[in-house]
Design a protein around this nucleic acid. Structure first.
Length: 563
DNA sequence: GCCGTTTTCGGCCCGACTGTTTTCAGTCG
């Protein structure tokens, strides 16, 4: 079986982590780290790529290409195995502890034979750390706290959790003086920590934080870090006149900032969070907004959602960034449940909500009857629903209810409703809800069968992940995307903040092959309609323009597309 | 280890804060 890009990337990442602990050249380590990240985002399987094609990928040179081919063939490579023999791989987990880096790990391992987190805990509790040169009592206590924190950690946040953490702190700031930056602002589907930029001063804000946080991690005039409900929040204080550069700096991504700084170096300048500095005379140019700073660097304004160093900077230099889809391009919601299955709204209420939102259409897509827990519809009930939908549409609202279903893809790849019933519907979503643990090949073939069914228009939440709760199915998405392109089937960007499935990079791959993306909120309750904004953000991160999005079509265009 | 519209060798983003130090290394974002 072919080794997936993810596996190759993991091996290269492990290699770079072990190199870090052994104190290898930092630039070499970074080269491996970067290569891992690049390969993880690549669509074409590197295991199948020729040497020449591999070398054409920026960031992959002769040495890494050789290792990639080795891993592609054997699942591992020589250098990795040699390092594993020399360094206990369990040490790598220590890198996850806050305040513990490769140098610290190397010392602990060599001097105290610490090989895993448990060992470190015992050494710290037994006060054996403080005897080491460069270590003291505070470090010892810090390790114990980091271990406790790591074990209790809820991991990454979904966007709803992130918003509640932000709300916890919002009272400390004067409205209009602060902006949430970081991965939250870039619209990522999951968020590690929260970054905030404020124009209020540290002396004003720091005291106000005390009773709103679990812990103050560190506190300064320029930056304060706190912990709220187990999550780290970094706050940077800035002057209004430097807000632009500080926002760019703290919004990231890290890779984006590095590329930006490289570009500045080309013209003899230095970029930091305070502005752009001329190397020659030290003069600093300050920017109160991001757009001015981008313009100064010769770049088109780059929206936060694109700042991942995935080609956007090069396009911005030529003023060729695409016009991305926006919320106002969305003419309807293509995944909504009613009280005919497990939703809470009546058909009339769906139409009324659509009207309030200014939509031209809403796809009523209740579950099929095979899914016991959701009181799904069988063929007969589906027909009765059809009459009801006609009745609601005759009431003359401005939002048309389309009749569809979210039909189950059964374990053998057949669908939970008969073809004759499906062919009567306006649009059909097909989704996997059961037997989620199948192997990669079976799951892929199962979904491809649904793609190939001529009545199926959209594959719903194609990877089945639930953020932070359930990993994606084992599935070969590149095969699904290829087949969807051939059959003209759309793939869903499920806008539920707990799914966001497909995610940005998969959306970009689909879009690049011309597979239409359908954004649906998977609404079950009235509040869920507002999740459309999350879906649009992910589509922006996937470089989609309005033309790439199925529900930016007019009602007539959509019906023509489906027929 | 990668890379080149100054370079095939000599660079590689930049700064804040802590702890352990008598000037800085390590970590983090």
């Amino acid at each position: 079986m072919e080794v997936s890009n993810r596996e190759v990337a993991r091996k290269l990442l492990l290699l770079s982590e072990l190199q870090e602990i052994t104190g290898d050249n930092v630039f070499k380590i970074r080269a491996f780290y970067r290569a891992a990240d690049i390969i993880d985002r690549l669509n074409n399987p590197v295991a199948l790529m020729s040497d020449e094609d591999l070398r054409l990928v920026p960031g992959i040179g002769p040495a890494i290409a050789k290792k990639v081919r080795e891993i592609g063939k054997t699942g591992t490579c020589n250098e990795l195995e040699e390092l594993r023999a020399k360094v206990p791989p369990s040490l790598v987990e220590l890198l996850n502890l806050e305040g513990v880096g490769p140098k610290t790990i190397a010392v602990l391992w060599k001097k105290l034979n610490v090989q895993c987190i448990g060992d470190l805990e015992k050494a710290a509790a037994g006060h054996r750390i403080r005897s080491l040169k460069g270590f003291g009592e505070k470090k010892e206590q810090g390790f114990l706290r980091s271990i406790a924190l790591y074990r209790a950690a809820g991991g990454r946040m979904d966007r709803v959790e992130a918003e509640s953490v932000i709300n916890n702190l919002s009272g400390a700031f004067t409205p209009g003086t602060w902006v949430v930056a970081g991965s939250y602002r870039r619209g990522k589907s999951s968020i590690g920590d929260i970054d905030i930029v404020t124009t209020e001063s540290a002396s004003v804000i720091n005291p106000k934080l005390k009773n709103r946080v679990d812990e103050v991690i560190d506190e300064g005039e320029r930056r304060t870090s706190v912990r709220v409900r187990g999550h780290r929040v970094d706050i940077r204080f800035t002057h209004e006149r430097q807000l632009g550069s500080m926002l760019i700096y703290l919004t990231g991504s890290k890779e984006f900032n590095i590329r930006l700084r490289e570009i500045a170096i080309e013209s003899g300048r230095k970029v930091n969070e305070y502005g752009v500095q001329e190397r020659a005379d030290g003069k600093i140019h300050e920017f109160s907004n991001e757009q001015d700073m981008f313009a100064f660097l010769g770049l088109q304004n780059i929206i936060p959602e694109l700042r991942e160093n995935q080609g956007e900077i090069e396009l911005a230099r030529n003023y060729q960034l695409p016009q991305l889809v926006g919320l106002t391009d969305i003419r309807g919601d293509l995944h909504v449940h009613s009280d005919w299955s497990d939703g809470s709204l009546t058909l009339e209420q769906l139409a009324m909500n659509g009207e309030t939102l200014g939509y031209d259409y809403i796809l009523c897509s209740d579950h099929s009857a095979t899914l016991g827990i959701t009181h799904g519809l069988d063929e007969e009930k589906l027909q009765r629903q059809s009459h009801e939908i006609e009745r609601v549409n005759r009431m003359g609202g401005t939002c048309t209810l389309l009749h569809g279903t979210e039909v189950d893809i059964l374990v053998n790849g057949s669908l939970g409703l008969q073809d004759h019933a499906l062919s009567e519907l306006d649009l059909v979503i097909a989704s996997v809800h059961t037997s989620l643990k199948e192997d990669r090949d079976s799951m892929t073939r199962r979904v491809i069968m649904a793609v190939e069914n001529e009545n199926v228009d959209i594959i719903g939440h194609p990877t089945g992940r639930l953020l932070g709760k359930r990993p994606p199915f084992e599935i070969d998405l590149s095969r699904i995307i290829d087949r969807a392109k051939e059959t003209g089937t759309s793939l869903e960007c499920n806008a539920s903040p707990w799914r966001l499935d497909l995610d940005d990079t998969d959306i970009r791959h689909s879009k690049e092959l011309g597979v239409p993306i359908s954004i649906g909120t998977d609404t079950h309750h009235e509040d869920d309609f507002s999740h459309m904004r999350y879906g649009v953000t992910i589509a922006q991160r996937g470089w989609c323009s309005a033309k790439d999005i199925l529900n930016s079509l007019t009602l007539q265009e959509l019906l023509d597309w489906a027929s």
